[in-house]
Structures are given as structure tokens and as C-alpha cells.
Design a protein around this nucleic acid. Structure first.
Lengths: 263, 263
DNA sequence: CGAAATTTTGATCACGTTCAACTTCAGTGG
DNA sequence: CCACTGAAGTTGAACGTGATCAAAATTTCG
């Protein structure tokens, strides 16, 4: 029904055009795990983008309570979605990594339900939500891709609820490290052995619902038990097997969009 | 681009056809808050449904770790999305109310990341994910609607993270009651004064990351402080103002899908 | 009605918070 | 080059909240 260019004949799950783009665009890398994108698709996608914005560390990207109607895709850098409470406590809901979306769920609601702050220098691709909607009208696969991304987001949040609600601090931290590693790995920002932690302990404690001292001790315990090794912000999984077992970690993999026959 | 029947001429945000359907279908009631649906739209939507399934209380709808590729829409009754951990603890991620979706996010991943169980008798409208995708190819507005629903889901999860992570048990329970009330109200299952609680205290404690005794005491405290009144499973908000202040509750309202000119 | 599930109450204790001090390190300007 | 500053990480001691376990009271349901 849509104008799928017949140029690509490959089977599902193994797209497609533009290995080029995939290499420098983490979002494309993510999308290609569940939807085939032709070069034409990518072109019309990039055409909806307004600009590639550089963002300074510590800049607020979204403000809790305000209307927000852009869609931002992180090309590089890190951010945190959080909420500040009356009592001064902060809960980090999620860390945003390359390939993640900034306007979700804020742009879909009358006002953003939380804030987003850059925790490193970033580069962002931005478009108006209405422009993306228009694109979806022409090519429904993008609307479906959006749903798929949103579902992944929800699945990640669900794990965070489980982390904070019922996992012990040790399991919680183990699960967190594995999750971040898995997500970074999915966009080519980590290797099998480990990754560079882009967060401070204060941020992690605010994400995991712990106090900073306790997070610190818990991290020390993971080290003491020989599960991880940390130096210079780099985390190595000394015993990935045991760590995954401790955390009961199940990686999140999207299923390909089940297009009927063609595609 | 899609066949929007010109039959309806009303302005945005105030749809449209089929007040009939809206009255008995909570999903339609929800959708109409952010997308205009013609009678033709509804017809093609209902046409993708396989069946209207009655479900018995305590039935498992989705099993953690198994592939699941249906989309279920709750017409009536209640369910809980949860995860069972090795240590026997259970975390309820979300309660599913009339108008909620069952296959989110399970059907979008290679395997469901959590289980869903019916906590009352239910009636469910079910379709294959692939059938819904096909519908979206013909009418992109449904794909967008799916994204909007997913974004709402994510926003609700985000609040749960904040609840469990950084709100005191009292604030947490207050927030929970207000959230459920607001969601029930949105599909015509509650009045301004209060609502019928369809959950046991054990379920609520598993949702809020508390022990049953502590949840019970916290509930008693809300009563003692004159914020709510409970009898026969019915919750009345004696002092809704104070309750919302205590919980820092901000209701979640979707913004209309920003279609360009027409529609 | 009887059995099972749910709600309520009580006593004890462990875990994680809080608060405080100290260390380490990177960046900056004198 | 070193002193200064502020941010981040580390360690310790005391306290309090909420878990745990147990049992009774109450309600629901087969």
C-alpha cells in the first residue's frame, strides 16, 4: 500500500540500504532491528528534520509542566529524564542514550510530565511533532516505528519499576548496569566486555531510588564479589554470567513489524 | 490521503460520530480525546477484531517469557501486569482498566517481558497484531493512535517509578488512588466523589512496593487524617484538594494528534 | 455453613537513610 | 607550578522506617 521501493529485495530482519547512515546514526541502527528502511525512506525521514542541534551539558531540554511539541532524536551524548519533588528529592525515570527520543512521552500530552536535562554535550536531531505526523500520513511505517519505539520505552520503564519496587539494591544495580550495557551495545557504543559509564553515582542513586552512600557501598560490593571491575569510569563485566543471574536480566529485543505479504 | 469521510464537519478535539459506540466502548472514549474517528473508521477498526472474548477471573492473559502477538482491548473488567521474581516477590507494574491494551509492550518484543492476569471477569476484544498493522497501512491514523496510547502507558509507568522511588508511602498511596480514579473517570467508570476499588490490599501493596501490613496502616492513616473514606470497597475522596496536594498529582491528558490541515 | 481469602493489629529487627567528615581528582587562576 | 575550588567518590556512626513474622478478626465465596 505504501510506496516501498522495490530496489531492495532482502528478506525481513536483515535490511537494507544505507549501512552508511546506520554507522553514524544510532537511531537508524535501532530502527533497522524491526523495520526495513529504504534509502528513500531515510531521505524522507531526514527531510522532516529541522536541524541538527548541538546541546551543551547541563542544558534543560524539557521542563516539567510545560507544553512540548517537538520530537528529538539523540545522535550523540546523554540525557536524563527526571522529576523533582516538593521535598527536594529527585527521581530519574530513565537515562536517554544515543538513538533515544526526547519528546516521549511529553510531546503526546498536553504538558510534559517530567523534565529532561543533558548530562553531557549532545547533538540532537529535532523536528516538529506535526511534521513527523505528516510524514506518518504519507508513510505509515514511520507511525508504526514510533509505536515500536514507544513500546520499548514502556518495557524499559517497566523494568525500572521492578528494579525499584522489588529488587534488592545489589540486584538492582546489577540489573541497571546490564541494561545500560545492552542498550549501548545496541547502538554500537559498547563492546562485549564492558562500557564507559557516563553517569555519576549521584545520578545512578537517583535512578535506582537509593542514597548516594548506599549506592557507593553497593557498587563496592559488586566489585568485592568479583562481578565487575571499575576504573576510570569504565565498567568491565568480570563475570557476566553470574551478574545476569543475580539480576535476572532479560534483554529487550523488538520483534519485526509484521507487515502482511510484501515488504 | 486517507478516506476521511466528509460527513463530519466538527472541529478538532470535539469528535464526532458514534456517541453510541463511545458509551459502551471505553477504548473509543479514550481515543476520542485525541483523534477524530468517523463511523467508517470505527467500522474498519471493529472489522479487524477477531472476537469478543469473555475471560474468567484469575486467567493468565500473557505469560512472562513467551512470545505474544495479539492486541487485546479491555472492554470490561480489570487485569494486572506483573512480574514474579526468583525470591517469590511480585511487582505489579500496572493495573489494566477498561480501555487499556493487553499486548503492550509484550507484542512488540520477541518475548513478553512480564505476565498479565485477569483480576476480575473480563470481556476483551482481540485481534492479531499483523491485522492491526495491516489496518494501519490503510489508515495511518490508527498507527498514530497506537503511538499515543503507548505514550500514555509510558507516562503512567513513569509516575509509578516516581511513586516507588521517591514518594513516601502515604504520598504514594494517595497518588495511586488519584491515578486510578482519574483513569476510571476517563472511561466513565467513576464519578467525581470517588470510585469502586477493584483491587485487594495485597495487589496494591505489590503495585506500590510495600508490605501488606504497611499498606494497610497507610490506608488507615489516610482515613484517620480525613482525606478519604472507605466502605464496601468504595473509596470516597473526603478532601480531594488536600489529597492531590499531598500526592502532587498531575493528571495525564493526551494532546490531540497534530494533523496538518484537513481532519 | 464451612473453608479460604482478606483485612487488621502487634512486636521485633534489619536494612538503608541521614548526616557528617574526609579523600581524591580535575579544572582554574594567581 | 602550586594553591585553591568544587565536584565526585568513600567511609563511619546513629537512627528510623518499613519489613517480617505471627495471630486474630472479618469478609467472601464455594
Amino acid at each position: 500500500m505504501t510506496d516501498l521501493s522495490p530496489r531492495i529485495a532482502e528478506k525481513h530482519g536483515r535490511p537494507c540500504a544505507a549501512g552508511q547512515a546506520a554507522r553514524d546514526d544510532p537511531l537508524v541502527a535501532r530502527l533497522q532491528s524491526f523495520v526495513a528502511l529504504t534509502r528513500a525512506d531515510l531521505d524522507s525521514f531526514y527531510a522532516t528534520m529541522e536541524a541538527e542541534q548541538p546541546i551543551k551539558k547541563r542544558r534543560d531540554l524539557v521542563l516539567d509542566g510545560y507544553e512540548f511539541c517537538k520530537l528529538g532524536f539523540i545522535k550523540d551524548g546523554f540525557a536524563a529524564r527526571y522529576k523533582l519533588l516538593r521535598n527536594g528529592k529527585r527521581q530519574i525515570i530513565n537515562f536517554l542514550l544515543p538513538g533515544d527520543m526526547v519528546g516521549m512521552p511529553g510531546s503526546f500530552l498536553d504538558r510534559a510530565p517530567n523534565s529532561v536535562i543533558a548530562i553531557s554535550d549532545m547533538t540532537l536531531q529535532v523536528c516538529a511533532l506535526s511534521a513527523f505526523v505528516a510524514l506518518c500520513g504519507r508513510q505509515p511505517k514511520f507511525a508504526l516505528a514510533l509505536s515500536w519505539l514507544a513500546a520499548q520505552e514502556a518495557a524499559i520503564y517497566a523494568e525500572h519499576i521492578i528494579d525499584i519496587g522489588r529488587r534488592s539494591p545489589l540486584e538492582r544495580l546489577a540489573h541497571f548496569l546490564l541494561e545500560i550495557h545492552s542498550r549501548l551495545n545496541g547502538v554500537g557504543r559498547a563492546d562485549d566486555a564492558g562500557f564507559d559509564l557516563p553517569f555519576t553515582q549521584e545520578m545512578m542513586s537517583d535512578a535506582l531510588g537509593l542514597s548516594v552512600p548506599h549506592l557507593n557501598r553497593t557498587l563496592a560490593r559488586l566489585r568485592a564479589e568479583g562481578l565487575i571491575a571499575v576504573n576510570e569510569r569504565r565498567v568491565e563485566f568480570s563475570d557476566a554470567k553470574a551478574l545476569a543471574l543475580l539480576a535476572q536480566f532479560q534483554p529487550i529485543h523488538p520483534t519485526p513489524i509484521p507487515f502482511a505479504a510484501d515488504d
